[in-house]
Amino acid sequence: MNILVLVKQVPDSEALVQVKGEGSGVEVEDRYTLNFFDSLAVEEALQIKEQTGAGTVTVLSLGGQKAIEALRTAIAMGAAEAVLLEDPAFENGDEYATAKALAAAAKGMEWDMILCGKEAFDDSSGIVGPLLAEFLGIPLVTTVVKLDFISEEQAVVVEREIEGGKEVIKAPLPVLLSAQKGLNEPRVASVMGVMKAMQTEIKKLDLAAVGLSQSEVGKAGSKEEILRYHRPPERPPVTMIQGEATEVVRQVVALLKDEAKIL
């Protein structure tokens, strides 16, 4: 079983993000980490590999130096091979253009299953995975919290989270699955793993290598355009209430009724 895992390096949740100038861009503090949901996908791939005892876990990312960090983290966890899509033409693409490039790369690789995170911490779209499945013509299941591989049938039975419940779905290989919290507890890389990650060669693919044209990727290949950025609306300063409990509760209820007009 060969598994391809999509990974992305994203700002961590504490990173400072500010809107630049008149909303033309954003400035992100340099505090990056492997996307949490992607680490679940890497972990799951490694567990399947350990269970089946055969095949390769390959991690794939698109970008520059940051993407390399994501790939190295995944190798340190135990992934065997890493592929980076790197070309100025790929830059500033939306999810559609990114998925096009990933699909072109995936077509040239051997895999039975693709795993990814349910969304990335930065844009929280959760679109690239499903688009990739569509471009590759394979089925997909998102927000997977349990995965059983049935080797004799070359199929998976997965549980997917829905509002207040779950769906149990059977899918034949090849399939794309996106990982939701609860799927597993991602391992922490060992020292040996980190050393291996530093030495492992990362295979690089540019536009020509994946066989796409300039117009299909990056900004030119995008469907969505960001017009401007905004700061979120600010909440008015907090009204603090303290004192004797009965009085505090009376005040809160009065404020919710008369000021907030919500009860």
Partner: peptide, 12 residues
């Protein structure tokens, strides 16, 4: 974007 630290206007 970024967990609500920034909002973006997007158009198709």
């Amino acid at each position: 974007l970024f967990g609500g630290k920034v909002l973006a206007d997007v158009v198709c």
